[in-house]
Nucleic acid binder design. Sequence first.
DNA 1: GCTTTAAAAAGTAAAGT
DNA 2: ACTTTACTTTCGAAAGC
Lengths: 203, 186
Amino acid sequence: RLRTWDSRSQVHEPVDRNFRQAFSELDRLKDKLALSDAVIEKTAYIYRKALDKGLVRGRSIPGLVAAALYAACRNTETPRTLTDVANGINIKRKDVARCYRLLLRELDLKMPVVDPIKGVARIASIADLSEKTKRKALEFLKEASRIEVSAGKDPMGLAAAALYLACVMLGENKTQKDIAQAAGVTEVTIRNRYKGLKEALKL
Amino acid sequence: MPQTKPIVSIENVVASASVDQKMDLNEITRNFPDVEYHPDQFPGLVFRLKSPKTATLIFTSGKMVCTGAKSEEMARSAVKSVVQKLRKGGIKVKKDAVVDIQNIVASINLGGKIHLEQAARTLPRSMYEPEQFPGLIHRMLDPKTVILLFSSGKLVCTGAKKEPDVYRSVNNLHSLLEEKNLMIYD
DNA sequence: GCTTTAAAAAGTAAAGT
DNA sequence: ACTTTACTTTCGAAAGC
């Protein structure tokens, strides 16, 4: 467990101090964001690479740890938003985003495209939506990505709109506000995506 | 050969310039009531022209930065115009400005939609993060430019230092998109 | 890295009617 | 709900913190 870290933890060279400092940060996040060991492991791997490439020089350690963590989530298809990670470490989302872009560029990381389907379960559980509604939303999203209405749109906004559309279709009484809050988007975004989905799916 | 002819529109040209002499920004501020100069905030003075609609930053070193022009030529004439106005306003400027184009921003319409997600998977040096921005960011090596791609088929090209580089970038990308079947024409 | 300038793309957001 | 304003991304130069 955390071999990347353990392998050098005995040696007290500056690089390892940096690594240890960075990961005391990460330990707190593991519980806060309910992350798996695999994600933590990948975060350590990515951070180590950044360290070896000298990307940490003159930059905030929490910012890069957050970025490495977000990259690990993306890489493992773990549904955590940039905002989740930023709030977890208590840094500005914009700073995490900047560090994340730096990691992608300098380490040549290729990330899978975020699938809106990954956000459905979390929104549904926070908004307390039925299993049936969830299934229906998944269907809508699959068709939406097939015909590419999702291109350029915020995955969480799409997932929220699909769930709202499913609620309307199946008669589950949930307000746009409830779902918007659960998804972390505005009601306006749900309305816009809802309109787009309905037209594109000809419903 | 590409199936459509991209419509390219140059939207902004950034140029640096120098009159190779120290400038008294406070004097300029006194003689030109419309300029903005807040040295606490930024060391450059902002000199705006109504036509061509540009903003030129003037520094005490005599170096300048002109933004907002719609062409390389317009940027050069804007700088000439600024120097001319400074002289008319009683500011002594011995030499004419030497101008260098630093960046050209253009908007483009390819005339067909783009398979953005597939492009994100196949284009090298690209980043597609719809949670942060709706466009796909692609870094081209030659010419060294950055192109933003949108599913609508519209693009933004930036980083070019010559107008021909904008066209070369667009044509390179357009061919690449067609080669890889990432374009949708109706 | 930041500060300031300008400009487009499309999405999201917030404020005011 | 609609409009308006504004912010996200990309780029480069300038002088200085």
